[in-house]
Nucleic acid binder design. Sequence first.
DNA 1: AGGGTTTTCGACTTTCGGTTGAAAACCTCT
DNA 2: AGAGGTTTTCAACCGAAAGTCGAAAACCCT
Lengths: 229, 229
Amino acid sequence: MSQLAHEVLAAVLQVRERSLQVLLWRRAREPAVGRWSLPGGGLGAAEDVETSIRRQLAEKVDVQQLAHVEQLAVFSAPDRKPGPRVVATAFLGLVPADNDPEVPDDTDWYRVDALPPPAFDHGAIVLRARDRLRAKLSYTNLGFALAPPAFTISELREIYSAALGYRVSATNLQRVLSRRGLLEPTGVTAAPGPAGGRPAAQFRFAAHGMEVTDPFAVLRPPQDRSTGI
Amino acid sequence: MSQLAHEVLAAVLQVRERSLQVLLWRRAREPAVGRWSLPGGGLGAAEDVETSIRRQLAEKVDVQQLAHVEQLAVFSAPDRKPGPRVVATAFLGLVPADNDPEVPDDTDWYRVDALPPPAFDHGAIVLRARDRLRAKLSYTNLGFALAPPAFTISELREIYSAALGYRVSATNLQRVLSRRGLLEPTGVTAAPGPAGGRPAAQFRFAAHGMEVTDPFAVLRPPQDRSTGI
DNA sequence: AGGGTTTTCGACTTTCGGTTGAAAACCTCT
DNA sequence: AGAGGTTTTCAACCGAAAGTCGAAAACCCT
């Protein structure tokens, strides 16, 4: 079995200014000078890939603000980078909206739908991350990782719309999430915008909704009516 | 960046004898002599991980019969195997029911819910594969990869029940799949069983259902009623 | 006070999935 | 051939979930 290098990369996504954006840094040296790269780096000898990506992301953003990290896929085309072969494990990371983490000078956020010239296969990785997020938003409770600690339904609607790429109904969003027991009111009402309007109630995600749970199952097990409550 | 070995492994699942089973081979040499291992091997210099796992699976089963292969996850704990470190990319493979591929002498099928002693972390990989299959059966059209080319609704129900671990309603299964446009009748009616009974109509998965499509979305895009048909 | 804006919420409709039961179409045994 | 058993098929019903709509509430500014 041949020895080869292994790196970890993360597409860290956040909804910023009403659009889905990804954290990229500009390469100052060859290869791919001037192109934009995902954060990450080589896998250390004593760490698994998840430990490694969290360690390396800590250099770019405050880890406290990473609400969710999950494996995305392995990218292993032999020619995916020039030079000695490197296999990459790619991750999806999510930062809640309204956070504005300090980032290094060479690093910044870019719209996923208008990426600057990406290095190597990093463009494909970003798109995979976006697609994974969109799918999971719909059939899991992953939304908690994109939302700030407290939010109004309108704000949450903006976040979902930006991430999904189409407008969702605020009424429906509230009902779907409520029915799953994910929303709870904070009691606070937010101040209205400059144009006035009724003040909006603030919500937060329920504590038990802060982990990704099983997807909604379409073919459910039969209901057992014998076990009366 | 340190150099290390990379292997590919596959949990190849099939519904056999009304239960979900996985293809395992018995280790004849150290390490882990006598324990049961997933098929796979080292990543070649000129191949990506998917090419590699397909090549290595060809030594165990007829590749024609692999209806679906997808990446599962990377397993990278530094101590997942004794000896020099090896990172593994694990795959989920699916073989349609009713196929009975030739397998080598040291290789056989085992029930996922009663695994023989697994080598290394291969037990965890099998369970991850099972969970992924169960989730995707529910919210995608992945069922096509478990079903034979033609089947009755009862047979399909057996397959789904075995894979999911609970009984599903035949009536409901047929309607859900039909509504998604995945089933089409072959025109043939199967012979009744030994106890008689009405002969069952045969179906097949529609051609456009033979790839995994987008999951069922809960928060759909708004319906555009302006584009009348 | 009046007009504009935004949020909230109830009500309606449609779609989807779970359940049931009757009818259809076969078998075997007498 | 008829009776009785078995399995499949399908229509009908029901409830839950989700999409849509509009009125009322609660704020702003002039």
